[in-house]
């Protein structure tokens, strides 16, 4: 018997829910040889605004979790992706996953596990008891910054996105991320996996759409405390100029075809430090 095909409507994962763009707009997703796959939400600056509100709501609760618990939850996310790795590989390749693509998915899972491990350890490395010449204890401790905007590279669409998100959220930040414009589908599928992990809704918010429409809002939105982006030199300039008004912390890499996203050197505790605030406290000895 012939069944009617039941195709998935791609939706973006914002505030723990799967939504369409508030504008109702979509753009077609095609395979390399031009075959139509699906219509993907073309999110707008208002979707970005709404995602920031969702992130703000989720933030305090996420930051209050114990580091140990955040580690468990990130590891759980890796567990949720692992059995569906083939689906993600298919989402990246759109019709015929190659070994190269499977390697990317495996690397993305490993990257999440890597940062999960850091959750209850980075404080020992980045915090400090400072020597001072007075009868005080002097501590430097780290705190999450708040809501961070992430703009993923065009490729590798999954590994790039995960590499930006994982070090940001592990410390208690929340993130609003814009997926690769040319390959947005892995972000859609990743959203479904985020929803089944124990990550509270709103901690990771994924948008799909066109950079040109959202870049200026990413840079000027004063509620975003940081930007982690992989963009072109012109886009970098635009982001940094806009971010100056609200004194946003920017960690922006220039898109470079030769960059090795698989290299162990891309994983580092300093990627976590990039979106932490350091608080130094003086406390009298003996009091």
């Amino acid at each position: 018997m012939n069944r009617l095909p039941i195709n998935k409507t791609p939706k973006v994962y914002v505030g723990g829910a799967f939504i369409r763009s508030e504008s109702g707009r979509v753009f077609p997703l095609k395979t390399a040889d031009g075959r139509f796959v699906a219509h993907v939400p073309q999110c707008t600056r208002k979707d970005l605004r709404n995602a920031v509100e969702a992130a703000a709501k989720a933030g305090p609760g996420w930051a209050r979790r114990t580091p140990y618990n955040r580690a468990q939850i990130l590891y759980r996310l890796a567990e949720m992706i692992e059995p569906r790795a083939a689906e993600l590989a298919e989402a990246i390749a759109l019709g015929g996953a190659t070994d190269e693509v499977r390697r990317e998915v495996a690397a993305a899972i490993d990257r999440i596990v890597y940062y999960a491990g850091w959750a209850d350890k980075y404080e020992q490395v980045l915090g400090n008891v400072n020597p001072v010449a007075a009868p005080y204890f002097n501590f430097s401790v780290t705190e999450p910054m708040g809501i961070v905007g992430a703009i993923a590279p065009a490729a590798p669409s999954l590994l790039g996105l995960v590499s930006l998100i994982a070090p940001v959220i592990v410390s208690g930040n929340t993130v609003v991320a814009l997926a690769s414009e040319v390959s947005p589908y892995p972000a859609v599928v990743l959203g479904e996996m985020l929803a089944t992990s124990d990550l509270p809704g709103g901690v990771v918010n994924l948008l799909t759409g066109f950079r040109a429409e959202m870049l200026s809002t990413f840079s000027t939105h004063a509620h975003l405390r940081g930007l982690s982006a992989v963009v072109s030199p012109e886009e970098r300039k635009q982001l940094e100029l806009g971010a100056a008004e609200s004194v946003k912390r920017c960690h922006i890499q220039t898109e470079d075809a030769g960059f090795d996203w698989y290299s162990a050197s891309t994983e580092s505790v300093y990627a976590i430090r990039d979106f932490l605030e350091v608080k130094t406290v003086w406390h009298p000895i003996g009091a």
Binding site: R49, V52, A55, A56, G59, P60, A63, E143, P144, M145, G146, I147, T174, T217, T220, H221, A222, H223, E245, S246
Partner: peptide
């Protein structure tokens, strides 16, 4: 530019 609520005497922790 969109503004954060804590610019307007809104108690919103660090977020």
């Amino acid at each position: 530019a969109y503004q954060p609520p804590y610019y307007f005497s809104e108690a919103a922790e660090s977020y």
